[in-house]
């Protein structure tokens, strides 16, 4: 069972603001899904390796050759929040 407090903590980890009123509602819905996920406990996975990639490939590389970068104008084109070629954000703490 995920608690209201855990919902708020996970919300902070995921940087999604959740106020106290919402966290109750979230907890209910998330718990119904987590209950469903719990059915995996029945599966015997002893000695079963995890599958991270379906394709069994290794060692895909790129040569150390320079490719053209984007013009600064394009880099900053999707924001209003810029200053002297930099992105501009609020202070950190």
């Amino acid at each position: 069972m995920i608690t209201k407090e855990e919902v708020e903590h996970v919300g902070w980890l995921a940087r999604i603001e959740i106020d106290a009123k919402q966290s109750d509602a979230y907890a209910v819905k998330l718990n119904s899904v987590l209950d469903y996920f719990g059915q995996l406990d029945e599966v015997d996975t002893e000695n079963v390796p995890p599958t991270y990639h379906v394709a069994d490939i290794v060692n895909v590389f790129r040569k150390d050759v320079v490719q053209e970068s984007m013009p600064q104008e394009d880099v900053l084109a999707n924001t209003e929040n810029k200053q002297e070629g930099n992105f501009k954000a609020p202070r950190i703490m």
Binding site: R62, V65, Q67, V75
Partner: peptide, 22 residues
């Protein structure tokens, strides 16, 4: 010559901000 995951040049030290990105 290039960054870890893309072909952008590593030679950015004297460059304008955000000119060595993709």
């Amino acid at each position: 010559n290039t960054k870890l995951f893309c072909g952008c040049s590593t030679n950015y030290h004297d460059s304008e901000p955000n000119t060595h990105v993709c």
